[in-house]
Design a protein around this nucleic acid. Structure first.
Length: 834
RNA sequence: GCCCGGGUGGCGAAAUCGGCAGACGCAAAGGACUUAAAAUCCUUUUCACCGCAAGGUGAGUGCGGGUUCAAGUCCCGCCCCGGGCACCA
């Protein structure tokens, strides 16, 4: 077995150094191909429930099957795979699955571009990418593969939808969509470029209101916020902050301004400034607005809505107009004008605000522009009230109220409390909490997604498809033209349905689900992927969950992860799962850029996994993405750097193969070099183990192994066979999580059997790792002057004495007054002189 | 504007608890081997100055202050870069 792999051309003799020991050239292609074939079809990474071992669920975010794995994917999977293999070696029962986020818009675009059905396009992409996965030997249990566009999967999306509907968590309401009048179709946000259609660059996108489906995530807002406590410390602080901002909870007051059209309710966090309100402003979509203005006004309001949809709010000029009507401030009875303006959002608060230009920057900007009066009612705690005339900018800070009737002279927070209490007492308002987060719009007017399982019946209205009739299959014979509201509307055999309630003719819902629905629960399906009676067996979930480690890009910090948390809470309330949160620990890896530029297809600088594997092998590719920078940092792919790693693996391989014979014979006696190398070996094991257990800075782990290799080259001929055998064995094991092919090859060369990841992770011996003597740094006035080698535990006074006597120290000390000597045992002596 | 990260040699980086700044790798230079090259192996490589040399001296972690025997690391102020949020009332 050993000999058959080393053909003559591979061998040469290193005469000058190593006494005629044959070494082999590192031929990555041959090694990787051989093990690839050996392992094919062996189900090496199969996971099964086993209560006798601690479980470990490691998960990388499933990819969209775009056609090829690029180096960003490789980085993500190399981190997860190293961890999975390490955990196996530490005795854990590891679940490490993979799947495909296979629904989505690009498949439809591809269908339009090259007339290939989305299903076909998707499956051929999956096949290509899976081949790359296998080539890299990422340790997935492929029996558990989940492909979200398969009916076996998406029927459970539909099932969850029905559960949401039952619990009042799915509902319909009108919502605006982007509409291209040229295509006659709905556009996704990413298809809107500079306010115009991506395919018709001069056609402005309009806003149209359609009935659409929503999930009531707002019902869980407080839980989503509260349960973040369970995640603190285990999720990146940055992600939690982003989610908190996204939810955007703010406490304030709602109050009614009176008007001829009924009360106008406004929300404010600064009710303490309400005596400074000089107008009320409605969002252009506000229901009262329509009644207050004429046709010309309505046209202006509509134009505002369209313009706002496609512009970056940051560079939009504030605009508005006076309705001609007035509102009454409930606190002082003052009559103020009612305006309509583009910067007031209908989607936040009550869709109406009071404008207090003196104390709000936006209101200040708006009111200054239109000559609306500015009246200060808050003064700085130590300062005077601003005068209206020379006011150059708003004073938005808290302070002391003035000119506020009975509430004058109070600190802002006290004023807020008392004024809110008055609103509640007099019945014109109340304390209120508002959130930025909105209900999750799940409707997409698209073909390539999960059909929403309801029908519309003329007699019965919206009727859910019975569970027993799931899945509602997505038709496959379809022409994608990019025209019309949804491609599904052109498929009569899909649209024409029977009402499950009355048996009469009905129209099937043609909206499909947002693909975030697919990815909100796929990690549960991995635990029971072939179940055809339920989304999964709860018993399996309670064994594997929560996910111990989730690894993916920070770009999913908000949507995917918040939706996943929401789904878990709903599933828990249905009684399917026990955990509050799906993911115990989250790791967000940095982006990969190529030679200084963001990788993109249009730039043509995408570094493909296969190309790198071809040239250097997959072990080199994996090791390099882990070695270049710590995994959480952005990484620049530079070809030259890869060469260094390839050289390193070659060094390991050559060293091992030319010493394996000596190692097997365990010849020679203990030497000084042995002790030195053993120390280094155990220091290296300690370093690599600590990196796995704490920060995952694999760049330093790999650097440590390189140092060990450098030392081995220095002492090669001085080592005994016993120590060589020990070092080579542990080297192979330590490289296992990073370079599975090479480490397996070394393992075999050492005459050992079985996959490396099924071996036990080497333990380090703290005594062996300990340096023989302490290196003491001697400083004078903080400057390094000498080193001392002393036994560990040398008493302080001895260290002080030795330091003062050191010939390199004397010139800096002699003739000077010694003020102080600081001694840190086993570490440092600092002599302070004057 | 607000909230996070970050700024260290020619480059990627290391220094994990306030204790030798630059581990490891890339690039570069020199040497060995070779007819030659590649590959490989060995050496040098923060900057400035002194020295024939061994070696020595000084400066140095974005900038300015501070705390400390001692600061890349802690504190205050500023500059720059990256990311997220951004009319959220």
């Amino acid at each position: 077995m050993l000999k058959e792999s080393c053909c003559g051309a591979n061998q040469r003799r290193v005469i000058h150094l190593h006494r005629l020991m044959p070494e082999k050239t590192y031929d990555h292609n041959q090694i990787e191909l051989r093990w690839y074939e050996r392992w094919a079809g062996q189900d090496l990474y199969k996971a099964e429930e086993d209560s006798s071992r601690p479980k470990y669920y490691v998960l990388e975010m499933l990819p969209y099957p775009s056609g090829a794995l690029h180096i960003g994917h490789i980085r993500n999977y190399s981190i997860g795979d190293a961890l999975a293999r390490y955990k196996w070696m530490r005795g854990f029962n590891v679940l490490h699955p993979m799947g495909w986020d296979a629904f989505g818009l690009p498949a439809e675009n591809a269908a339009i571009a090259n007339k290939q059905p989305p299903c076909e396009w998707t499956h051929s992409n999956i096949a290509k990418m899976k081949a790359t996965h296998r080539r890299f030997q990422f340790s997935y249990d492929w029996d558990r593969e989940v492909t979200t566009c398969e009916p076996e999967y998406y029927r459970w999306n539909q099932w969850f939808f029905l559960k949401m509907l039952e619990r009042g968590l799915a509902y319909r309401k009108k919502a605006l969509v982007n509409w291209c009048p040229e295509c006659g179709t709905v556009l996704a946000n990413e298809q809107v470029v500079d306010g115009c259609c991506w395919r018709h660059e001069s056609t402005p996108v309009e806003q149209r209101a359609l009935e659409q489906w929503f999930f009531k995530i707002t019902q869980y807002t407080d839980q989503l916020l509260h349960d973040m406590k369970q995640l603190e410390g285990n999720w990146p602080e940055r992600v939690l902050t982003m989610q908190r901002n996204w939810i955007g909870r703010s406490e304030g007051t709602e109050a009614d301004f009176g008007s001829d059209y009924g009360p106008i309710r406004v929300f404010t966090t600064r009710v303490d400034t309400i005596f400074g309100a000089t107008c009320v402003i409605l969002a252009p979509e506000h229901p009262l607005a329509e009644r207050m203005i004429d046709a010309a006004g309505r046209a202006r309001a509509k134009a505002m809505v369209d313009a706002r949809a496609n512009k970056d709010p940051g560079d939009m000029e504030k605009e508005g107009f006076f309705t001609g009507k007035y509102a009454v401030n409930p606190y002082n009875g003052e009559r103020v004008p009612i305006w309509i303006a583009n910067f007031v959002l209908t989607t936040y608060g009550t869709g109406a605000i009071m404008a207090v230009p003196a104390h709000d920057e936006r209101d200040f900007e708006f009111c200054s522009k239109y000559g609306i009066p500015i009246r200060a009612v808050i003064r700085p705690v130590e300062g005077r009230l601003a005068l209206p005339a020379p006011m150059k900018e708003a004073f938005p800070d808290d302070g002391i109220t003035e000119n506020s009737g009975e509430f004058s002279g109070l600190p802002s927070d006290e004023a807020r409390r008392r004024m809110t209490a008055k609103a509640e007492k007099d019945g014109f308002g109340k304390a209120a909490v508002t959130y930025r987060i909105k209900d999750w719009g799940v409707s997409r007017q698209r073909y390539w997604g999960t059909p929403i399982p309801v029908v519309h019946c003329a007699n019965c209205g919206v009727v859910p498809v019975p569970e027993s009739e799931l899945p509602v299959l997505l038709p496959t014979n379809i022409q994608i033209t990019g025209r019309g509201r949804s491609p599904l509307e052109d498929v009569p055999e899909f649209v024409n349905a029977t009402c499950p309630k009355c048996g009469g003719p009905a129209r099937r819902e043609t909206d499909t689900m947002d693909t975030f629905v697919d990815s909100s629960w796929y990690f549960y399906r991995y635990c029971d992927p072939h179940n055809d009676r339920a989304p999964f067996d709860p018993k399996k979930i309670s064994y594997w969950f929560p996910i111990d480690q989730y690894i993916g890009g920070v770009e999913h910090a908000i949507l995917h992860l918040i939706y996943s948390r929401f789904f878990t809470k709903v599933m828990r309330d249905i009684g399917l799962v026990e955990n509050d949160e799906p993911v115990k620990k989250l790791f967000t890896q940095g982006m990969v850029i190529a030679e200084g530029a963001k990788m993109s297809k249009s730039k043509g600088n995408v570094v493909g996994g296969d190309a790198v594997a071809e040239r250097y092998g997959t072990d080199t590719a994996r090791l390099f993405v882990l070695f270049a920078v710590p995994p959480e940092k952005e990484m620049d792919w530079i070809d030259a750097g890869v060469e260094g790693i390839y050289r390193f693996l070659g060094r390991v391989y050559r060293f091992a193969t030319r010493n394996v014979e000596r190692a097997r014979q365990r010849s020679g006696n203990q030497t000084d070099a042995d002790r030195k190398i053993l120390r280094k070996l155990h220091q290296t094991i300690r370093k690599v183990t600590e990196d796995f257990e704490t920060r995952w800075h694999f760049n330093t782990s790999i650097a440590a192994v390189m140092e060990l290799m450098n030392d081995l080259y220095g002492e090669e001929t001085n080592l005994s066979g016993v120590v060589l055998a020990d070092v080579l064995e542990k080297l192979a094991l330590m490289l296992g999580p990073f370079a599975p092919y090479l480490s397996q090859e070394l393992w075999k060369e050492l005459g050992r059997d079985g996959p490396v990841f099924q071996q036990t992770w080497p333990a380090y011996d703290a005594d062996l790792a300990k340096e023989a003597e302490a290196e003491i740094v001697v400083q004078v006035n903080g400057k390094l002057r000498a080193h001392l080698s002393t036994p560990f535990g040398t008493p302080e006074d001895v260290l002080r004495q030795k330091a003062l006597e050191h010939p390199k120290v004397r010139p800096f000390v002699d003739g000077k007054q010694i003020m102080k000597v600081i001694v840190v045992p086993d570490k440092l002596v600092n002599i302070v002189v004057r």
